[in-house]
Amino acid sequence: MELVIFDCDGVLVDTEHLAVRLQIALGAELGRPLTADEVVERFIGRSKEAILGQLTERLGARTAGLWWSPLVRRHREAVDLGLDPVDGLPEALAALTAVFHDMREPPALLAGVSRGRAEDHGQASPAVRAAEAHGPT
């Protein structure tokens, strides 16, 4: 492999809105309603440990324990259903393909691959699937 491109959330596709929506729904289901602003302030961009620490402190260990697994499962399901690429992604991928057309192997794009799903790395990432579905505009 000659080139690997790594992506951070929001560069190729943005899943932040999914995380916010899902955490609002989970909070309501568990009797702990949250606003979008509260979710962004408390959880977005934070590690699992930080999120669980805040949940445990605020809601107790039992409710915190009920939060994480459904969140991860629902987020994965939502991502697998499909994402919209950020503006310009299909064109950017087409340009990268043109630039690297002489390489023995195409560049590998690792995006949206969590540690727990690393075994899926041989499949197209959510970002690539989103770009392919929308094509260049």
Rank of each mutant, 00 (worst) to 15 (best):
L81H: 15
V128L: 15
A131R: 12
L26Q: 08
R117E: 14
A118R: 15
G45S: 07
L12S: 09
V79Q: 10
P136Q: 11
A94L: 07
P90W: 04
G122T: 13
L12H: 09
R129P: 08
A92Y: 10
V39W: 06
A118E: 11
H75A: 07
R104W: 04
V39M: 04
H134I: 01
P85D: 10
L109G: 07
P136N: 04
L83F: 04
D7P: 04
A28W: 02
V113G: 09
E41L: 14
P106K: 13
P90Q: 08
H121C: 13
G88Q: 10
A64F: 03
D80Q: 12
H134G: 13
E119W: 08
I44D: 12
V128A: 10
E38T: 05
P106H: 11
H75C: 07
L110W: 12
L52Q: 14
L66Q: 11
L34P: 03
V40S: 12
F43G: 10
T56P: 01
L30W: 00
E29R: 03
C8H: 00
R129H: 06
V40T: 15
A19I: 05
L52W: 02
A131V: 08
T56E: 13
I24K: 13
G10E: 02
E49K: 14
R115M: 07
G27E: 00
Q23P: 01
E16N: 11
K48H: 14
A19N: 03
P33A: 02
